[in-house]
Design a protein around this nucleic acid. Structure first.
Lengths: 67, 67
DNA sequence: GCAAAATGTCAAGTGCGCTTTCCGTAAAAA
DNA sequence: TTTTTACGGAAAGCGCACTTGACATTTTGC
C-alpha cells in the first residue's frame, strides 16, 4: 500500500511532529507511515483522512499483491 | 466504529463462510467484524470495499469517541 | 561553516487483528 | 427425535501497529 502522506503534509507546510500531535500519535508513527514501514490501522486512516478533508481512498492507494 | 457488513452480506444472500473465502480470511474474522468485536485492518477494509463495489467510508462508519 | 531543527531509524514493550481449534446453540431438514 | 447447517464465542499463539527513548543523519538558517 502506498500513501500520499508526505506530499500532503508538506503541502500544508507542517512538520511530522505537528501532524503527529494533531492526530494524537507519535512522531515515529508518522515517519514510519511516510516511509512505508507499515500500514496505518483503519482508525488512524480515518483520522488522517478527516484531518486532510479527503477520503481514505484518495490518500492510501491499495495495491493487490499484498504480501 | 460501526459497519454494515452483516447487512451487505445478507443483501447478497451469502453465508459468512462464503464471504470469508472470497476475502481470504477465516469465518471467525467475518463473525467478529459483524459483531463489532474488533476493527478490520486497513488491508482487509480495502478488500471488503472492493468486494462490495463501495468505498470504505460507505461500509465502515467512523465514530469519534470510541476507546 | 556551524548550530539547531527536522527527519531517519533502531530496540524493546504493549495491545490488537487474525488464525486455528474447539464447543455451544438454534433452526431446519430428514 | 436426530442430524445438519449457520452462527456465536472463547483460548492460545503469532505478527504487526504503535509507543517511549535514544541516537545518527540530513536539512535549514544565520
Amino acid at each position: 500500500m502506498k500513501n500520499r502522506l508526505e506530499e500532503l503534509r508538506k503541502a500544508k507546510g507542517i512538520r511530522q511532529e505537528a501532524l503527529a500531535d494533531a492526530l494524537e500519535v507519535s512522531r515515529q508513527t508518522i515517519g514510519s507511515l511516510e516511509n512505508g514501514r507499515y500500514n496505518p490501522s483503519i482508525m488512524l486512516a480515518f483520522k488522517i483522512a478527516r484531518y486532510f478533508g479527503m477520503s481514505i481512498e484518495e490518500i492510501f492507494i491499495y495495491e493487490e499483491e499484498d504480501k
